[in-house]
Amino acid sequence: SEYETMLTEIMSMGYERERVVAALRASYNNPHRAVEYLLTGIPG
């Protein structure tokens, strides 16, 4: 799925699956924002 592709691409940058899933959830599946959250911390 498109979601799995995003997940895999972000994980390939060296992040753990659960952190990527949390970041995508926080960003409403916006991959650019999710990466930003992984770099700066997930808000909330």
Rank of each mutant, 00 (worst) to 15 (best):
S1V: 13
S1T: 14
S1A: 12
S1D: 13
S1M: 13
E2R: 12
E2N: 12
Y3Q: 04
Y3R: 04
Y3W: 12
E4R: 07
E4P: 03
E4H: 09
M6V: 08
L7A: 02
L7D: 00
T8M: 15
T8K: 15
T8Q: 15
T8W: 14
E9I: 13
E9W: 15
E9D: 10
I10Y: 04
I10K: 01
M11V: 08
M11W: 04
M11S: 04
M11T: 06
S12I: 07
S12V: 06
M13I: 05
M13A: 05
G14R: 02
Y15Q: 02
Y15F: 15
Y15W: 12
Y15M: 03
E16P: 14
E16H: 05
E16G: 07
R17A: 05
E18Y: 08
E18R: 05
E18T: 07
E18I: 07
E18P: 07
E18N: 09
E18V: 06
R19F: 10
R19P: 07
R19I: 13
V20L: 02
V20Y: 02
V20C: 04
V20E: 00
V21Y: 04
V21S: 05
V21N: 04
V21D: 06
A22K: 07
A22W: 07
A22M: 08
A22V: 08
A22S: 07
A23G: 01
A23R: 00
L24I: 04
L24E: 00
L24W: 02
L24H: 00
R25W: 08
R25G: 07
R25T: 09
A26R: 05
A26P: 01
A26N: 06
S27T: 10
S27R: 01
S27Y: 05
Y28V: 08
Y28F: 14
Y28M: 15
Y28T: 07
N29W: 13
N29F: 11
N29L: 08
N30K: 05
N30R: 04
P31E: 05
P31K: 13
H32N: 10
H32C: 09
H32K: 14
R33V: 15
R33C: 07
R33D: 08
R33K: 15
R33I: 15
A34T: 04
A34Y: 02
V35C: 07
E36I: 11
E36R: 07
E36Y: 14
E36F: 13
Y37L: 14
Y37T: 04
Y37N: 03
L38R: 00
L38E: 01
L38F: 03
L38S: 00
L38H: 01
L39Y: 05
L39T: 10
L39G: 06
L39E: 12
T40P: 03
T40M: 14
T40L: 12
T40V: 10
T40Q: 13
G41M: 11
G41Y: 12
I42C: 06
I42Q: 09
I42A: 09
I42L: 13
P43A: 09
P43D: 10
P43V: 10
P43S: 09
P43N: 09
G44D: 14
G44I: 13
G44W: 12
